[in-house]
Design a protein around this nucleic acid. Structure first.
Ligand SMILES: [Mn+2]
Ligand SMILES: [Mn+2]
Ligand SMILES: [Mn+2]
Ligand SMILES: [Mn+2]
Lengths: 218, 218
DNA sequence: TATAATTTTTAGACATGTCTAAATTAATAT
DNA sequence: ATATTAATTTAGACATGTCTAAAAATTATA
């Protein structure tokens, strides 16, 4: 059984290794977990001894199948609890991440699966992130960042890449939520900012915001 | 903020000090938490420095108002989660204690209160134990152990004193649950065992079982 | 009241996870 | 290729919570 700390390391490595399963650097993990590189070095050694990651000194780390599976199941719990908090307890989408960070470490496979059933097997969490099933399989998604969209198209917001309250509050202010239809009016070459229209209201968003909004083209 | 370990100590001390707020001994705490007396000595010193307990060396400990309040709120969370697990997720009453031991340490007063509302402000948990409200006040109960009942009376089970699966399973086998009506037929002086009748079926229970069943006389 | 038994505390050690500072290795620039 | 810079690891320390073994205080017994 990994400790809570170990689980957080596995989750961070999963997040940082992306779809192409790149090697993850010590520094990247340290930044993600807001800890020091020396602490990461220590932990990485331990996870490697437990066969949860592959680790070659100075080369970075990658998850083993077992490590990946653990990480995915923690993410599953995190996202299911977020659904519970928003859909059943009426939390707002910007209030649930920190609570889910705690709940994701509760150990009971019975509990996860019953929670999943209670929530009617949701495929996406309140931020549009895919929820792996009990086998650890993610529902397929084809979303791309809003920052990569060509000019003059109509798109639909399907997910956000950040769970931070500051960002989510800002989206609320812009009237952007999961499912919102957005018309791209113009991409400004100078700073990659975008002019958009939502419900006939024209708005302007920076590239930093656009990068963290995932959409599908309509 | 107390750590999870500190919370468990406070909860143990609350449980052991009973209604009359007796002083709790080091050994009693050690036994309750399945740890060693020397560890308790260390922790008790720390909790005392944080003003969560009153501690005089060799004399035992008692909770301060602040310590009591913390303990009560952990118990509140424990019991609310147990209600959630049984009433919403369809767990059986003998399956929820260990999961609630984990969930009780989740930190978010918003969460507790929303959960309370979601569950419609229950007064008792699945084992009949009273659930303190947000102010830390317990609903009044006048239950007494079945072992203290006089012969030839009709009583109703209102709570159980043990959360252990073994005990709860045994009660299931006896067809005893919260609300069950029991007729006391005879108390056997020799071993304090009791002959009872439930739904016209006669049964025999030991004093160990009777001590852990709380009833109110009808 | 003196002695024995029990309870509690202290001393010293260990495991986990963190840190700073120093050493080592790898990457970059001249 | 060598020097500089950056990334990573190691060494040594600290905090938390645990343990065993020994010392001290309390309680029970004679
Ligand atoms: Mn989240
Ligand atoms: Mn999310
Ligand atoms: Mn319980
Ligand atoms: Mn209970």
């Amino acid at each position: 059984m990994p400790t809570q700390t170990e689980e957080n390391y596995l989750k961070a490595i999963f997040k940082l290794s992306g779809n192409e399963k790149e090697l993850v650097s010590t520094n990247a993990i340290a930044e993600e977990l807001e800890t020091k590189a020396s602490s990461v070095s220590d932990m990485v050694k331990k996870l490697s001894e437990k066969n949860l990651i592959n680790y070659v000194k100075y080369q970075g780390v990658s998850l083993t199948n077992e490590g990946r599976d653990l990480a995915v199941h923690i993410i599953r719990k995190h996202r299911l609890w977020e659904v519970f908090l928003v859909n059943r307890l009426n939390f707002k989408w910007d209030e649930v991440h920190d609570i889910a960070e705690q709940l994701e470490h509760i150990r009971s496979s019975e509990l996860v699966n019953k929670l999943d059933a209670f929530l009617c097997y949701p495929n996406y969490d309140p931020h549009g992130d895919p929820i792996p099933n009990a086998k650890g399989e993610f529902p397929k998604t084809t979303a791309i960042p809003l920052s990569e969209v060509q000019s003059k198209s109509k798109v639909k917001v399907v997910a956000v890449e950040l769970d931070e309250p500051g960002f989510l509050n800002y989206l609320d202010k812009l009237n952007i939520s999961i499912g919102t239809q957005v018309e791209i009016l113009e991409v400004n070459d100078f700073d990659d900012s975008i002019d958009i229209k939502i419900d006939d209201v024209q708005r302007h968003i920076s590239v930093e915001v656009a990068e963290n909004i995932l959409i599908s083209v309509l």
